[in-house]
Design a binder for these strands. Structure first.
Lengths: 348, 348
DNA sequence: TCCGCTTATGGTATCGTTCTCATAATAATA
DNA sequence: TATTATTATGAGAACGATACCATAAGCGGA
C-alpha cells in the first residue's frame, strides 16, 4: 500500500491552510471559486483521497449502520428471506450514502458482545435488529443506552418507544387461513415456529382468530409449534398422516418447511394439492420452486428491509422524531398448492 | 445517547496517565498487576468502553474487511449461494475478530466508486471480491494501489500475483459431464452463464473436454450461454424440445435455472428424470427443493467463503506472504434428477 | 480619511487513542 | 555507597480531518 496523502500535504502544495482544504472538501460557499479550482487541481495531482477515520473522530458520525442478525445457525444466512431483507437495507443505505456493518456471531452471547462493541466503540451510527425475540438482550441494551435503532419485527414490549417495521402478521395469518376456509377446509393443520419469536406468536394468533370467527374448533393435534429451525419433514408428515382424522390443509409459518414437508407427503402418496392444500409465508424463490408452487403470503421482504433502513436513517438525521412504526402490507400470492376441498361422504 | 467516557476520564479518576490506561487496555506486561486492577475497577465504575475510531486513526488498521459483490440485480442477493459464501466469510471473520463491511451499489460504476471510497478512505484493511469478470475495474484498481485483496474465483489475469480461492471449475464441469456420459447420454445440452465471468468459461471448457475425450461431437444447437441471469425458462424448454433431435440430458451452470427449466419441461409432458437427466452446480437449498431433487456439483460455498476470509486475514497479518491460491474440492451429490439413458431403437 | 462590514483565508485546538521518549523508583551489582 | 540495570509510569506528540476564532483585504458610506 502506497503512503497516503493527507489534507496537510495538499495544503502545503497548494499554498493554503489545511482548514481551507477541508472547506474545499465540503464545498463550502466561503471559499472562492479560484482557490477551489487550485486546491482541487492539487488534490488530483497528488491523488488525494479523504481518510474517513479522521473525519469520524471529530464529527462523531460514521455514516454506517449496523445489522444484527439472529444466530446464523437458525438458517438465517441460507434463507433467501434474510438475503432479500439485506438487499432492501442495502438499497436504502446506498441511496443515503450509508454503509453496512454486519455482525458475524454464531451464538446469542457472541452477537450481544459484538453489538456492545459496535455501539460503544462507535463503529456505527445506528443499528437494525432483524428479529424480535423474547429474552433477547440486545434490544434492552440498545434501549438502555439510548442508541438509535429500528427493529424489523414487532417489539416484545414498549411499542410506543420503539421504532419498528413489520407486517401485520396477525392479519396476514388470519387472511391466509380464511383463504383456506373459503376453499372449504375445516381440518386445518398449523405448523408454526419457535414461539420465542414475536412473529411466531402473531401468526398463531391470526390462525386462531380465523378459526374462531368461522366457528371451527381448533384441535390440539393439528397445532405444531416447531422449536427447531430444521425439523425432520418425514416425521412431521408421518405424524400428520397417522392422525385418525388427518387435516386437508396446512398452514406453514416457514416456506422451507412447507416445501420439504410437501415432498415428504408426496412421497407417501398424498396427492398435492388435491388431497392436501398447503400455504406458507414470505414468498421468496422457495415458494416458486416448490412442487407444486406454493401459495404464500408475500411479506415484501425487500420492502421490509428498505423501510427499516430508511427509517433508521431518518431517525439519525432527526433524533427527536417520534418513534413511529411502519406496517408493510402483505399480499396473498396464489399458486398451485391449494384446491377446493373435495366433499367426502357427500350427503345429498 | 449518553455522553461517552474516554480514556482520559478513566485516567483522571484512577490517578494515572492516559498512556497507562491505554497500556492496561492492551494488557501490557509493563504495568503492575496492582495498577491494572485499579484501572480496570475505575473502567467498570465509569462504564468505559474503547472508542475504535481513535485507535483506528493511530494504528491505521480497522480490523474490518470489505466485501465486494457483483451488481445485486444479477440476483446475487437472493441467491442462497451468495448467502452461504457470506456465512463462511462471516464465520472466519468472527474467529479472527474482524468485522464485515458490505458494498451496497446496484451498478458496476456505483460499486467501483464504493470500493475506491472504502479503500482510499481506509475504512477496511482488505477486501474480498466475490466474482471474477472480464472488463471489471475493481480488481485492476486494487492491484494498482497494492491494496490487499482476495478473489473468490479465478482471476482473469495475473494468477501468480493474485491471491484467490476457487474450485477447479474445469474439472468439476468435466466430472459432472462424465457422470452423464457414464449414464449413457450423448446428446447432452449445456446451458451456461454469461461468458464475461471466468467461472462460466471454465465450466464450458470442462464440458467441452469431457465430450471431446469421450469422442462425442458437440452440437452447436445444444450449447446455450445465457447472458441474462433470469432467462425465460419456458423459452429455453421450448427451444430444446423443438430441436429435431432433442438432448437426453442437460448440464446447467445455475441451479435456479435448472430448477425452473425442469418445471417447464415437466409442464410440457417431459418425464423427469426418465426422459431427461439434469445436473447443476452449487448444491444450495435450491437443489434440495427442486422437483425432482437435483444432482449437483457441491462447490462448498461456505468453505469458499471461509477460506477466502481466512487467507485475506493471513495476508493482512503477514503482508509478504506469497500470493497463494486455494482450490476447494468439489463433490457430486447424487439425487434423483438423472437416469440411465433408455436404449432407443435398440439394435440386437 | 476613517469606520464598520463583509468575505476569504489562516492558525490551532480538538476528537480518543497509541506510541515514543523521558524519568522516577526500585533492584542488582561492584 | 556509588553505579548501573530494570521496572513502572508519566508527558506529550502523533494520526487526519474539522470547526472555532482570528485576521487581512476589500468595499461602501459618512
Amino acid at each position: 500500500m502506497k503512503v497516503s496523502v493527507t489534507i496537510k500535504d495538499v495544503a502545503k502544495k497548494a499554498n493554503v491552510a489545511p482548514s481551507t482544504v477541508s472547506r474545499v472538501l465540503s464545498d463550502s460557499p466561503r471559499i472562492s471559486e479560484k482557490t477551489k479550482r487550485k486546491v482541487r487541481k492539487v488534490m488530483d495531482e497528488l491523488g488525494y483521497h479523504i481518510n474517513y477515520n479522521g473525519r469520524v473522530l471529530v464529527s462523531q458520525s460514521t455514516q454506517t449502520i449496523g445489522i444484527v442478525t439472529k444466530v446464523s445457525s437458525d438458517h438465517s444466512f441460507e434463507n433467501p428471506f434474510f438475503s432479500e431483507m439485506l438487499r432492501g437495507i442495502s438499497d436504502a443505505c446506498h441511496e443515503n450514502d450509508y454503509s453496512i456493518y454486519l455482525t458475524t456471531g454464531n451464538t446469542e452471547e457472541a452477537i450481544y458482545q459484538e453489538v456492545v462493541k459496535m455501539v460503544q466503540g462507535k463503529r456505527v451510527d445506528g443499528v437494525i435488529v432483524l428479529y424480535s425475540r423474547e429474552g433477547d438482550k440486545v434490544v434492552p441494551y440498545l434501549r438502555e443506552c439510548e442508541f438509535p435503532f429500528v427493529m424489523l419485527g414487532k417489539p416484545v414490549e414498549k411499542f410506543g418507544e420503539t421504532m419498528y417495521v413489520d407486517n401485520d402478521n396477525v392479519q396476514a395469518s388470519k387472511d391466509i387461513t380464511d383463504y383456506l376456509i373459503t376453499l372449504g377446509h375445516e381440518r386445518i393443520g398449523y405448523i408454526g415456529g419457535n414461539s420465542q419469536y414475536e412473529v411466531a406468536r402473531d401468526r398463531l394468533e391470526g390462525f386462531r382468530r380465523a378459526m374462531k370467527e368461522n366457528g371451527i374448533e381448533i384441535k390440539d393435534e393439528l397445532l405444531k409449534n416447531i422449536q427447531t429451525d430444521k425439523p425432520d419433514p418425514e416425521q412431521v408428515a408421518e405424524e400428520l398422516l397417522s392422525l385418525p382424522d388427518p387435516p386437508t390443509a396446512l398452514v406453514f409459518t416457514d416456506e422451507y418447511n412447507a416445501s420439504t414437508v410437501m415432498r415428504a407427503l408426496a412421497a407417501r402418496g398424498v396427492k398435492l394439492p388435491e388431497e392436501m392444500s398447503v400455504v406458507g409465508f414470505n414468498n421468496t424463490m422457495i415458494s416458486r420452486l416448490s412442487a407444486p408452487p406454493l401459495t404464500t403470503v408475500d411479506t415484501q421482504s425487500i420492502q421490509l428491509g428498505h423501510e427499516s433502513a430508511r427509517n433508521l436513517i431518518e431517525l439519525l438525521k432527526y433524533p427527536d422524531t417520534i418513534k413511529k412504526s411502519v406496517i408493510i402490507p402483505t399480499v396473498i400470492v396464489e399458486r398451485e398448492s391449494c384446491k377446493q376441498r373435495k366433499a367426502e361422504n357427500s350427503q345429498p
